[in-house]
Design a binder for these strands. Structure first.
Lengths: 119, 119
DNA sequence: CGTGTTGTCAACCAAATGGTTGACAACAGG
DNA sequence: CCTGTTGTCAACCATTTGGTTGACAACACG
């Protein structure tokens, strides 16, 4: 189960219910019951979702009597953003290079796939 | 299996092997065998991974004789980036408001949790 | 002290996931 | 035409995932 941090975060956000919880937590902290209310599933199921989000570092929880308020940790988002941006940038740069390359050869085939000579 | 687009993309990138393939595809298009080479799994397994990436719109494939070159589609990244940025921003704004709120009340408890008067 | 509220833990279940092997289609090139 | 290469499809298997129900701990409050 050692699953790297990035995998855990992506995996955690791959579920629509979990994404919705995160969305709601950007507005305010909430208890498990509050979080569970809009969804048509048991409180236990939501508790499990919370564990996944917690394991991914997207969420922390404090104690306050018998309540366990859930708090969003937005920093983890940066992990993903960095990964995505990095490869998006590389993909774009490559696209630029390809463009430049095409510009240097106005019409010829760089590697003639077929030398013509077809009757 | 109707899984929404965002779920598919997050889910596709939740796997380290798949993320590595994407990373390599930012440098150059590749065939299935080329992609499979570094990993210690069968070509069929890689073919499955490709189907997942394709289903998420992260990758497209053309025909060229019996070869099926794989090409990265970077636009889908924007879907994720938008989602992430939106909620990261909201979380930060909320943090700001909380900060401002705390500034207006130098020391008092806004909602006395306990009115004292307990013998 | 008993009772209600809040949440977790454990056992169980169905479906999805990631891997395997074997068969086969499609094409290039001798 | 035969052969090798490239890739997919299908069946199968083990593990994970997302959900359920039931029991129980921890605490507030009458």
């Amino acid at each position: 189960m050692p699953a790297d941090p990035l995998s855990k975060v992506f995996s955690a956000l791959a579920d629509p219910t979990r994404r919705d919880m995160v969305a709601r937590l950007t507005r305010a902290d909430a208890t498990v019951n509050e979080l569970a209310e809009p969804y048509d599933v048991s409180v236990q199921a939501v508790s499990k979702h919370l564990k996944v989000l917690e394991g991914a570092g997207l969420v922390t929880r404090s104690r306050e009597a018998q309540r366990r308020p859930v708090h969003l940790e937005a920093e983890v988002f940066d992990l993903m953003t960095k990964w995505i941006e990095r490869y998006r940038r590389q993909a774009e740069e490559r696209y630029q290079r390809l463009d430049a390359l095409l510009a240097t050869m106005p019409d010829g085939d760089p590697e003639p796939p077929d030398t013509g000579e077809k009757p």
